[in-house]
Write a protein that binds this DNA or RNA. Structure first.
Lengths: 146, 146
DNA sequence: CTAGGTGCAAAAGGTTTGCGGTTAA
DNA sequence: TTAACCGCAAACCTTTTGCACCTAG
């Protein structure tokens, strides 16, 4: 590999920001790295804790602002299950979420083309879909899968 | 028809409340009627307005409390799309929601058994599903369908 | 240089809770 | 009679905003 994971991430981030007219800042970069760094579903508070290991003075408001920018750029996905705090997710492909009632763990399930088109065929003519959200709640006997 | 719509509703409500050990009150009854009365997706504020036509002194907190009770009894479904206020929905059968970006309208789409089982087959062994939520966001050229 | 971004604190918006009085069983 | 419930106001929690300072272009 010619370029490190981090430098490829940085390129992706910078070009996505530039495309939308946003400036690259170390805060945005740190928030983005933190989300990519672990394949889980942290909320803003948890992201704050992780980012502060690198930028100890960053504020929660800035984390929220950075997250909004990243979501706007399509670099990160915002996941809202019931009324709990928004979660942020680096998995950009089509997938469903499963939340375990007992452990609170959230697992992703990637969706194949056939499943997606059968989902989309639920809607009749005249409806154009920008985005869909599919989530399950229940219990699982699978461990955390990071 | 022997019994009026309202008296059947009242029976459903009372027996569901009793099953969970809740008392029947006129506030719960009014909130329930308001939600069944119009096949849309009102939020708590809107439900307050409608209920006040019948019980002018009911408070927003009581509306929230009644809604929690009704959801707990399985009489009404709580719908959370993005971060906007929770919506409440009398449609208890399996269905998906479509939200139109332009008009804010929400349409229900009932799901047939085949679609449901194909949805549920997304999850592997070891996952047991209590509930799922499927929602779409996009635009539609269909009018409001009440 | 200056528009955009940060950090802080305060506000906003939705929802829940504590409390004194009321009501269904 | 009394535990549950209501109405009100205050609290709560997540998220957004206003403002003075800072920084990338």
């Amino acid at each position: 590999m010619r370029y490190s994971l981090k430098s490829r991430q940085k390129q992706t981030l910078d070009s996505a920001l530039k495309r939308k007219g946003f400036r690259p800042t170390k805060q945005r970069s740190a928030v983005y790295e933190v989300i990519l760094g672990k394949k889980d579903h942290p909320n803003a508070e948890e992201i704050l804790l992780r980012v502060r290991r690198v930028l100890p003075t960053i504020s929660l408001a800035t984390v929220y602002n950075c997250l909004e920018t990243l979501v706007d750029c399509g670099l990160v996905r915002q996941v809202n299950l019931d009324r709990s705090p928004s979660l942020f997710c680096p998995n950009l492909g089509p997938h469903a979420h499963f939340k375990c009632k007992k452990t609170g763990e959230i697992h992703d399930f990637d969706l194949d083309k056939a499943t997606i088109s059968s989902l989309e065929s639920i809607l009749p003519e005249g409806y154009s879909i920008e985005r869909f959200d599919l989530s399950f709640i229940g219990t699982s006997n699978q461990g955390r899968q990071n």
